[in-house]
């Protein structure tokens, strides 16, 4: 497999990798770095690529793991920032009200979800993966995936209902 073959193979899902990375790492620069890193690693292991049944699923799993590691090392380095974390938790609603745009509101609501729910709602509602694919990707049982997805959807939906009932935004 040469370079252009490889680029052709990854082109249908490179945006998905980027969007998943951005979902987890938030910043565009970090997501770009992560995307770059994942494809570089994949390219270095290109001899094994024909063995992988589904390169896309493999790349997505790599992305998830890579971002998890990033987040872990970030948290380890940011232990002193407890104060700002606390502040952020105290006013999530106020903060989201500031965004006029509905898209931004939903974005910030999803940002506050637990990591696993973020991943699952991203894979299902944005990328429209089948449940079997998601289960493999996050190595979870179908029931657990459905529960996490249901929780994520309900959290977002309830927050939006609250905002509408109070007549804000």
């Amino acid at each position: 497999m040469n370079e252009s073959d490889f680029l052709k193979v990854i082109s249908p899902f490179k945006d998905k990798v980027f969007r998943l990375a951005k979902r987890l790492l938030v910043s565009i620069e970090e997501a770009e770095d992560a995307t770059q890193e994942v494809f570089f690693k994949l390219w270095k292991n290109k001899e094994k690529i024909s063995d992988y049944k589904n390169i896309e699923a493999f790349a997505m799993t790599m992305t998830k793991n890579f971002c998890y590691d990033r987040l872990k090392s970030k948290q380890a380095g940011n232990l002193t920032l407890v104060h700002t974390n606390y502040k952020g938790k105290e006013t999530p609603l106020e903060k989201s009200i500031e965004y006029k745009d509905a898209v931004n509101i939903v974005h910030s609501l999803i940002e506050q979800l637990p990591e696993m729910q973020k991943i699952i709602i991203q894979l299902r509602d944005v990328e429209q993966y089948e449940f079997e694919e998601i289960c493999e990707l996050v190595s979870m049982k179908p029931i657990a995936v459905r529960v996490a997805l249901s929780r994520a959807r309900k959290t977002v939906r309830n927050a939006l209902t609250k905002q509408q009932n109070y007549g804000v935004s």
């Binding site: 370079e3 680029l7 990854i10 490179k14 945006d15 980027f18 770009e32 770059q36 494809f39 570089f40």
Partner: peptide, 9 residues
């Protein structure tokens, strides 16, 4: 949303 950079190998 898409990845706008070229993948560097």
């Amino acid at each position: 949303e898409s990845f706008n950079k070229n993948v560097q190998l």
